[in-house]
């Protein structure tokens, strides 16, 4: 491979990994606070549509990001109302949320198509320096990728090196203990889910604004679940989870490459990588490492 090819491949990996990284952070922070976020796929879909639709209508990619943040917060509130306030079962709610979100985004997308809106987003967020960046690796990376990397480091520092981070993790280990220490468990988990929704929606936005610049039915194609896999594979540690996202993103980039070049290995085997690796990891480590109470509804006062 020439230098140029290596550079292009590196960029492809980062493009594929960025949406995963946002979503993985969202899922990880929620699970650390004791809420399973299976709805990540649906939140991502909502974010990706909101982002590209707003960006197209206003011709401003950053406004698209803002729209994704707002929509993500709303999805977090909806899921939180279900799994924190009522509380309904987290897995079932997540799955129902995903089905509904897929229907809703697809419905809105079809209506925009019928009304003749051309869903091709502006290219602002594809790379840091725009077309001028050609050949310069760091300047060719999307600003959203930088945001994701910074957020990853912040999340790690916050969770493992600060007081509030310790409280956050305690919420996922024992909600009762957190309650006893004076925390309002429900309010805290609602806040966590809003943040998680925003991050997942940003993942969707980075898919449609910094990569494909368009929207189609079910454009996320299970990427939310890859992010979920990255969290498990990365043992609920932000740094490791995002490293897993890079690994899985590389698998995706390799699959596209294999498809384009027609190499000997079937591209679908590369796409299988995240799932098989995660199954292996889950099989090897069992339940011991995750937050103890992730998935358990909090029923106390």
């Amino acid at each position: 491979m020439t230098d140029q090819a290596v550079l292009q491949f590196g960029l492809a990996v980062l493009r594929a990994a960025t949406p995963l990284a946002f979503c993985a952070l969202g899922v990880l922070l929620a699970e650390r606070a004791g809420v399973l976020n299976i709805a990540v796929e649906g939140m991502m879909l909502c974010g990706s549509l909101a982002a590209v639709l707003t960006a197209v209508l206003t011709q401003n990619a950053w406004l698209g990001v803002v729209a994704a943040v707002v929509v993500g917060a709303v999805t977090g509130l909806v899921l939180g109302a279900l799994v924190v306030l009522l509380p309904a079962d987290q897995v079932v709610s997540g799955i129902a949320f995903n089905i509904t979100a897929q229907g809703l985004t697809s419905f809105i997308y079809k209506i925009t198509v019928i009304r003749g809106v051309q869903l091709i987003g502006p290219a602002t967020l594809i790379s840091l320096a725009g077309p001028a960046a050609r050949g310069n690796f760091l300047a060719s990376i999307s600003p959203l990728t930088y945001v994701a990397l910074v957020l990853t480091c912040l999340a790690w520092v916050f969770l493992f090196r600060t007081g509030p981070g310790l409280l956050w993790r305690s919420l996922g280990e024992s909600a009762r203990a957190s309650h006893a220490s004076g925390m309002n468990v429900r309010r805290a988990r609602m806040a966590v889910l809003v943040l998680s929704g925003v991050l997942c929606a940003l993942g969707g936005a980075s898919l449609t604004l910094a990569w494909v610049r368009s929207f189609t039915d079910n454009i996320t194609m299970g990427r939310g679940f890859i992010a979920l896999a990255a969290v498990y594979f990365g043992r609920w540690n932000p740094l490791l989870a995002v490293l897993s996202c890079l690994l899985f993103g590389a698998g995706e980039a390799l699959a596209f490459r294999a498809q384009a070049l027609g190499s000997g290995i079937n591209p679908f085997y590369y796409l299988m990588l995240p799932y098989v690796l995660t199954l292996l990891a889950v099989g090897l480590m069992g339940r011991a490492v995750g937050p103890k109470e992730a998935g358990k509804p909090y029923l106390g006062g």
């Binding site: 279900l82 009522l86 309904a88 979100a101 229907g103 419905f107 019928i114």
Partner: peptide, 25 residues
């Protein structure tokens, strides 16, 4: 009618959400 068929997925998801919500409340 020109209403997108995706409406069906909404009609498959929303009942579950509502059912869950009411059952859990």
């Amino acid at each position: 009618t020109g209403v997108p068929a995706a409406l069906v997925y909404l009609l498959q998801g929303i009942p579950v959400l509502v059912y869950l919500a009411v059952r859990s409340s």
